[in-house]
Design a protein around this nucleic acid. Structure first.
Length: 215
DNA sequence: CTTTGGATCGTCT
DNA sequence: GACGATCCAAAGG
């Protein structure tokens, strides 16, 4: 229970679809790790052979194997030599697709999250980015392949009945160089934990004429 | 508030 | 050998 609401697992059938359909439906769901609970407020789609920005673009490797697993697994990867990031795996087995969890609104276990993230000065610094979210919840490579529906490794994806936003924010993905124009990021409009709010300007190489700006 | 550069290492070329 | 699905502190306005 969160407050007076009962938690219900997400259905695996919902997650088995095209991540482009699944992603906006994951907004406002809950990620539960022991005492720590966050509401997912920002996500990004990564697909397979048709997505040059995806780890799965060039086929299965040891690192990305979980992306080819059944829907409902957690794909956790290590990047920039120091950060972990987590995805919800979509599609049936052997077909790559996932939704990156980019930001969450802290609901429960805020003190544990703050202890795990000493750099965070404000509540909205706890989970406002894909690596921050993992650090706050204690998610690491040890959780790669966890089943979010059975909770075999202590992490669950649930809903408390809050519907996804009717008119979610939508725009280009963050931090990639290939296929950077595809609007495959979704967020809960107005939520202070969204990592790159609508209207924020992104860094662009100086002197690039007509450089796209994220809206 | 914004911008800039450094940290740091597994993965794939 | 190059490059990240990033974050943070420091410096400047």
């Amino acid at each position: 229970m969160i407050g007076r609401r009962r938690l219900v697992p997400i259905s695996r059938r919902l997650l088995a679809g095209d991540p482009l359909d699944v992603a906006p439906r994951l907004l406002n769901t809950l990620l539960v790790c022991g005492e720590r609970v966050v509401r997912i407020v920002e996500v990004e789609v990564y697909r397979g052979a048709d997505d040059p920005a995806s780890h799965a673009f060039r086929g299965a490797t040891k690192r990305n194997a979980t992306m080819f697993g059944p829907a409902g697994l957690l794909y956790v990867y290590f990047t920039y030599g120091m950060h972990w990031c987590a995805n919800v795996v979509c599609r049936p087995e052997k077909v790559a697709g996932a939704v990156l969890l980019r930001a969450g609104a802290p609901l429960c276990g805020l003190e544990e999250m703050a202890a795990a993230r000493p750099a965070a000065r404000r509540e909205r610094d706890l989970c406002s980015g894909p690596a921050k979210l993992c650090q706050a919840l204690g998610i690491t490579g040890a959780h790669d392949g966890a089943d979010l529906l059975t909770g075999d490794l202590g992490i669950r994806l649930c809903t408390d009945g809050t519907e996804p936003p009717q008119d979610p924010g939508n725009g280009p993905r963050i931090g990639i160089t290939r296929a950077a124009e595809l609007p495959w990021r979704w967020w809960v409009p107005g939520d202070p934990n969204v990592s790159v709010p609508a209207g924020a300007r992104l860094r662009q190489p100086a002197g690039v004429a007509g450089a796209p700006v994220v809206s």
